[in-house]
Write a protein that binds this DNA or RNA. Structure first.
Lengths: 131, 131
DNA sequence: CAGAATCCTCGAGGATACTG
DNA sequence: CAGTATCCTCGAGGATTCTG
């Protein structure tokens, strides 16, 4: 075994682990859904808003701004009255699609098992006050 | 085109999208790191604690419990004094490794670009008060 | 060793109203 | 149409202390 023994130093850190870095980017409440809405090509602000059930303008704008700052999406403004703003993935954002789609597929394939596990767990440890 | 036209109904929902479901599972602050610590096999509670820099017992226990409830990790107790508790991935948890590793790899490969994009963005829109 | 129990802070995210 | 600007709530997560 490569890294054996007891009393080893911490070797996993929030600041360094690749997991945390991606999660920092995509783990906000609406981020994944917004990427989902944009992933098929350029799309207008209002169209994203209409496609995502329950999102507010504030959260949509906030999420888009963060993704833009992270270099994942880009914003294209057509100065007209009223203005037209379109969003699309950057090249960097497109590279994120593959891992994210795998994640989404895992969710589709396995979430039923997760729910079953939860029910089982609650039944075993917490007969009252189900989730 | 399959889903064209304007004024379409919302077709993306937090409650339904596979993205959100996985993110709901792995997006807590320490979850990914804990899975990272466990992914190579059975490991003791104290060993996880030592491996992850900065985690407290409270958060470690809380994270492990949630993962156990979701059917991702399993807990094996050896009743001795003092007790020995070992954690490992369930079969379901192991299936999560592939998508998560891809995510981690993306982070390792691309986080530098994200940081560069942030600096560029802050420089452009916010000359003072950098991040 | 492996937690459980409390108390507290801080910021993500919601509701609402206004605007170029 | 595509946002800003405020105000407010609620719970994730930290610090600390205690225990079988």
């Amino acid at each position: 075994m490569t890294a054996s023994a007891k009393t080893k130093q911490p070797d996993i850190s929030l600041a360094v682990c690749g997991y945390s870095k991606v999660i920092e980017i995509i783990s906000n409440k609406w981020t994944a859904l917004v990427i989902y809405a944009i992933e098929n090509g350029s799309i207008r602000y209002g169209e994203i808003e209409r496609r995502i059930a329950g999102i507010s303008k504030k959260m949509l704008t906030q999420t888009l701004r963060k993704l833009e700052r992270d270099g994942i999406v880009q914003r294209h403004i057509t100065p007209s009255v009223p203005p037209m703003v379109e969003y699309s993935l950057t090249l960097l954002g497109q590279t994120l699609l593959r891992p994210m789609r795998e994640l989404r597929q895992w969710g589709r394939d396995n979430y039923m098992h997760v729910e079953a596990a939860r029910m089982q767990y609650d039944f075993t440890y917490n007969k009252d006050s189900m989730d």
